[in-house]
Design a protein around this nucleic acid. Structure first.
Length: 491
RNA sequence: GGCGCCGUACCCAAGUGGUUAAGGGAGCAGUCUGCAAAACUGCGAUGCAGCGGUUCGACCCCGCUCGGCGCCUCCA
């Protein structure tokens, strides 16, 4: 039985879909005016995991994630660079897809754009104006918060409290300082669409209401996003949507915590952010592995907690992951003994049950990882006592199955033979000492040396064997001798 | 000023009103190994920021204090 922490009620609640076996879920995506940073990655990854787990649990998931492609920031960026808004949004939408692919984040089932939903947006605003919940001032349309009595129920704020704290200049034309724009008249040169209120563009919040209702219906199951969207974005979405339809909007509100650097929120204004591509570029490890390291790191903390990013944390994730892939290598080797084949089956079954328990409890991925870590230990033990080739494949398949929910353990090659490092002079690793790789040895080079060494070992020439080991080690090659006299190696 | 979050071993990080406070990383010791690596085994918080309170019993509930952070303005 899945339960989810619902921001709306402030409690963990049993989850029930409105339609049986189907989840309709909307997540606020990004405004495409710049490269994504790690914070965006976390949010995307958290909801990707939730989506995957829901599917793993047998639900069909209608997952909608939007792109905001009309916005002040886009206009500003376009003006700065002297290019059109379309060029900006196209460029960063492409970049988004590239970054997400590297992180192993699956595309949503629908990825709508605000600019493609102008009719829906205008219809929705019109409805609010007709119901007298929104009002027009010159070419702008505002939502009147006092006309929605439940305003503040998501963020647990009262209108009066907020009024006291408001320290921005209030537009005198607004009836209440918290009233927000549904439609903004456009200045010359800005993107604009015709409307009953004049040429203009939609406010930020209305697009999500329009797009979610278009693709998921007026009432749907889950709405998610980063913590910082609770107010005002999601609060306003609720007001607009419920105001327009008179029905409940989203039923479960899920919000992920921030990525921090040294205990502080990662943000543009603080200048302490890392873009996703920057992390990949600076990583001394190949792309697939860096992606997996990031996922392991990001899912190692519960989605609602803040999490601090550092190079050390990434390295720790890699070390933890290495243990798995070392095991997977051994599982790929053949074996006749069947001593523990029976026990393996029950071990995997037990793990399967233990696995979904924490994930059912508000998506507790750290605990789920602990279950998989336990399974790793158990399989290692059984492996030592004897697991047949078939059982080894079964074990590997189990890791694939569990790992798929978290986007882990899907690689066929990690290290052991196939890996090539990128960049070979000096690879700076922030915070840690410099990783240095002197020169590249090709796989053939390594194989030749290895054969040479095993010859030497056969002849008990351990001095020579150790020299070769040392030589290879100085080139970042680690040798593992197997009981049968042959060796495996990894970089 | 309003609303809210966090403080668990060297580091990361789960968790429960009452059996031994998960798991990982790092470290140490041992087994194995020609050596090594990997793997396995063992060690590691008598305590969960501090102080009070509720309770038969609290790390977990309540209050206060200290420390750190977030939202209230665009923000994942």
């Amino acid at each position: 039985m899945l339960s989810i922490y619902n921001t709306l009620t402030g409690k963990k609640e049993p989850y029930h879909s409105l339609q049986p076996k189907t989840v309709r879920m909307y997540v606020c995506g990004v405004t495409v005016y710049d490269y994504c940073h790690l914070g965006h990655a976390r949010s995307a990854l958290v909801f990707d995991m939730i989506r995957r787990y829901l599917e793993y649990s047998g639900y069909t998931v209608k997952f909608v994630k939007n792109f905001t492609d009309v916005d002040d920031k886009i206009i500003k960026r376009a003006n700065e660079q002297g290019v059109s808004c379309e060029e900006i949004t196209f460029k960063y939408t492409q970049a988004y897809y590239e970054d997400m692919a590297k992180l192993g984040i699956l595309p949503a089932s629908k990825e709508p754009k605000a600019t493609e939903h102008m009719e829906d947006i205008k219809t929705l605003i019109d409805k609010l104006v007709k119901k007298d919940i929104a009002y027009q001032v010159d070419g702008d349309v505002y939502f009147q918060v006092e006309r929605y009595p439940a305003y503040g129920r998501l963020s647990k704020r009262r209108l009066n409290d907020m009024q006291a704290g408001a320290r921005v200049e209030v537009d005198e034309r607004k009836r209440h300082p918290m009233d927000f724009a549904l439609w903004k008249s456009s200045k010359p040169g800005e993107p604009s669409w015709e409307s009953p209120w004049g040429a203009g563009r939609p406010g930020w919040h209305i697009e999500c209401s329009a797009m979610s209702m278009r693709h998921l219906g007026e009432t749907f199951d889950i709405h998610g996003g980063g913590m910082d969207l609770i107010f005002p974005h999601h609060e306003n979405e609720i007001a607009q949507s419920c105001g327009a339809t008179g029905k409940e909007f989203a039923r479960y509100w899920i919000h992920n915590g921030f990525v921090q650097i040294n205990q502080e929120k990662m943000s543009k204004s603080l200048g302490n952010f890392f873009t996703i591509r920057e992390i990949f570029e600076k990583s001394p490890w190949p792309q697939e592995e860096t992606g997996e390291m990031l996922r392991y790191f990001l899912l190692g903390t519960h989605y609602r907690s803040p999490l601090d990013f550092s190079d050390q944390s990434l390295q720790e994730a890699k070390n933890a992951l290495d243990g798995f892939y070392d095991l997977f290598q051994r599982l790929s080797e053949t074996e006749q003994r069947t001593t523990c084949d029976g026990e393996l089956v029950s071990t995997v079954d037990r793990a399967r049950m233990a696995y979904s328990q924490p994930l059912d409890d508000d998506f507790n991925t750290p605990m789920a990882l602990a279950v998989i870590q336990n399974l790793r230990g158990n399989v290692n033990r059984l492996l030592e006592q004897g697991l047949s080739t078939e059982s080894r494949q079964r074990a590997r398949a189990a890791f694939r199955e569990f790992g798929n929910v978290l986007g882990l353990f899907q690689l066929v090659k990690w290290q052991f033979y196939q890996v090539t490092l990128k960049g070979f002079e000096e690879v700076p690793v922030r915070g840690v000492e410099q990783a240095r790789v002197k020169e590249v040895l090709s796989e053939t080079d390594v194989e030749i040396k290895l054969t040479e060494r095993n010859e030497a070992r056969k002849q008990k020439n351990f001095k020579k064997a150790d020299e070769i080991r040392q030589f290879l080690a100085s080139h970042g090659i680690v040798i593992e001798d197997k009981p049968d006299g042959t060796s495996r190696w990894k970089r």
